[in-house]
Design a protein around this nucleic acid. Structure first.
Length: 628
DNA sequence: CTTAGGG
DNA sequence: CCCTAAG
């Protein structure tokens, strides 16, 4: 190839190629240590994936699942708190998916159980079952990078510790945990997300309604576990094996996963109708049980009016009282996060699971969510009225005050968080994925740093094993579950159409972009300069080398990116300045681009012409000589 | 994995 | 930027 030819070519005692390529093996070794950023597949991606998968699954129905013998791990975060019988009905539907990992079964169980205690007091229910909550923060205001700000210490382990709402000053919406984390197997998940609402509220996650299962999150981690007292179904044996990661996940792996998810599960268009109605307190249901969703819809009651109530409901228990200074203080103790069922292949990595959950949650919370106010069950639509005029200041009415999370316009959630690793945790804590482990707290994985590779897939097999042991010792059900190959994550949104919009499943959303497209990162002039210099030296056929030489430590610039950029640079240089867009590239650089382009083009065609070329391309010549 | 190109 | 064929 051209490349080799160049190596052989010498002119005036210097080789054309100033940097001979090392043997592949060596180069590879070198590369292995390189990390590729962009691993953090944001929540939305996950969601998208889930949604797609879910939809597909729902159509293909459970039969396929059962028959193919594949096992999936399903995670449900909560059950509706307002005990309506529909829950039980819908829950039954879960049973058909026998192939699902125990977790799902557990969940089902829990749900059923839950339905029986519909009107359980939130507090009592939670405490009774020792459901623990941890919280993480998220930005409801459209997926801002802040989403990743999962602060430690946000967790509230005691209801009494709930902080007082700070009036209308804070724009944060917080979900706090009311119970101590007593059971390591908690599945509850709590969110602490800043929102634009002008009320600082704490919301216990939906877990409040799900006594048996909960997602708990420790320091940015969500733990999965079952608290089922009778049978600790949550067996991680198998799972642990599956999640073993012999090596850190590579960029490629991530992409593979994404590819799989995207290609396989996005094809089936979701039948939104099936999800049109959802419980008033509904949420995103990720599950492959189509029927279940239908049932829920059927039975759903309050959801019919308005797309809004469906998504999430700040569940009651808002304690409020009128202060002396005529301020209305509200303390929303719980915020229901819609049920979140996630199904992932047994072979999925922990990292992918984390991302899946993250995506699901992000999609849920990341959309343009609006806050609705309910008074006496009625929606207060007039934003201009004062609280007192509305009656919200009335002591009597405060108890009847409710908040809802309403899906905004059918707009894809802001992409911000997609690519920006949620890991940019301001808290200073090591960035971590939402869910650090499926098993016990022991699993907490360390996530290197925001810029490092996604920790998602970095769990060491060892750690996993140990964790698993821990878990398995308590339960062994998953043992016979063979989580076979996998399938992509299947998100099954079970909410109204509007809510669905929040999920990437909505076809109106550029699924591809939402799901996997990396964030656009325009090259800066300095980057272009570096690229040009490298290409001048190395030519246009050695992108890997260019990458190594000029962008070695810039993870988000792959050699393909560089190649593409060069392509565009050449194009840019050819078109009139008026047609150029973006940050203007100095003409000087463009000239060099053209020179190098012409130069290396010639070389490719005829290496012998290099002498002539050198004579003509002074800039290039100088650069090369200098480097040589 | 890299390259090279089309999308 | 993505995706893919090719090597």
């Amino acid at each position: 190839m051209v490349f080799k030819k160049r190596l052989d070519y010498e002119y005036n005692s210097f080789s054309v190629s100033n940097v001979p390529r090392a043997p592949r093996s060596i180069r590879r070794r070198h590369r292995t240590k390189r990390t590729v950023g962009d691993n953090q597949i944001c929540a939305f991606e996950l969601l998208a994936s889930l949604a797609g998968k879910l939809l597909e699954e729902s159509e293909s129905s459970a039969s396929s699942n059962a028959s193919d013998g594949r096992n999936h791990v399903s995670i449900a975060s909560a059950v509706d708190s307002d005990g309506t019988t529909e829950n039980s009905d819908s829950l039954k539907e879960f049973k058909h998916s026998k192939n699902h990992a125990i977790l799902e079964r557990t969940l089902t169980k829990m749900q059923c159980a839950y339905s029986e205690q519909t009107n359980l007091d939130l507090k009592s229910a939670i405490c009774k079952h020792n459901v623990a909550y941890e919280s993480f923060t998220g930005n409801l205001d459209g997926c801002s990078p802040n989403f990743g700000q999962f602060c430690d210490g946000i967790c509230e382990k005691d209801i009494k510790r709930e902080r007082e709402a700070k009036g209308l000053e804070s724009g944060a919406l917080a979900i706090a945990n009311n119970c101590p984390l007593k059971d390591p197997l908690d599945l509850s998940m709590t969110f602490l997300a800043p929102v634009n609402s002008h009320v600082d509220v704490k919301l216990p996650s939906r877990s409040d309604s799900v006594p048996n299962a909960s997602f708990s999150r420790h320091r940015n981690d969500i733990k999965l576990g079952s608290t089922d007292e009778d049978d600790q179904i949550y067996r991680c044996n198998k799972l642990s094996n599956r999640f073993k990661a012999s090596r850190p996940p590579t960029h490629i792996e991530d992409r593979r996963i994404r590819k799989l998810l995207m290609s396989k599960y996005w094809k089936v268009a979701p039948k939104l109708k099936d999800f049109e109605h959802c419980k008033a307190d509904g949420g995103i249901n990720v599950s492959n049980s189509h029927e279940k969703i239908k049932n829920e819809n059927k039975s759903s009651s309050g959801a019919s009016h308005g797309a809004c109530e469906m998504s999430s409901l700040l569940t009651g228990h808002q304690a409020s009282h009128k202060s002396n200074d005529s301020h209305v203080k509200l303390s929303i103790k719980s915020f229901r996060v819609p049920k979140l069922c996630i199904e992932v292949p047994e072979t999925a990595t922990v990292g992918s699971l984390k991302r899946t959950v993250m995506d699901a949650m992000t999609a849920l919370l990341g959309g343009r969510i609006h806050v609705g106010v309910l008074l006496q069950g009625k929606k207060v639509r007039d934003n201009s009225k004062t609280l007192s005029q509305t009656g919200i200041s009335s002591e009597d009415n405060l108890d009847a005050l409710g908040f809802t999370l309403e899906p905004g316009p059918l707009i894809a959630p802001p992409p911000l968080c997609y690519n920006e690793p949620p890991l940019l945790l301001p808290c200073g804590a090591a960035p971590q994925n939402l869910i650090s482990s499926l098993t016990t707290p022991v699993l907490d994985t360390k996530i290197p740093d925001a810029t490092a590779d996604p920790p998602l897939l970095t769990n060491s097999a060892k750690a996993m094993d140990s964790n698993y042991k821990h878990t398995s010792s308590q339960t062994d059900i998953l043992t016979d579950q063979k989580l076979s190959e996998s399938r992509a994550l299947v998100p099954v949104p079970a909410m109204n159409v509007e809510v669905l919009a929040v999920v990437p499943a909505n076809q109106k959303i550029r699924k591809s972009e939402l799901a996997r497209r990396r964030t656009r990162r325009p090259f800066s002039v300095s980057e272009v300069e570096a690229l040009v210099r490298a290409v001048e030296e190395l030519g246009t056929g050695r992108w890997r080398d260019v990458k190594l030489q000029a962008f070695e430590n810039v993870d988000h610039r792959t050699y393909v990116d560089l190649k593409d950029k060069w392509k565009t640079l050449v194009h840019t240089a050819k078109i009139s300045p008026q047609k150029r867009r973006g940050e203007p590239v100095p003409q000087e650089l463009l000239d060099r681009v053209m020179a190098a382009h012409a130069y290396w083009s010639q070389h490719q065609a005829n290496k012998a012409s290099i002498i002539l070329e050198l004579g003509e391309l002074q800039t290039l010549k100088l650069t090369e000589i200098e480097l040589w």
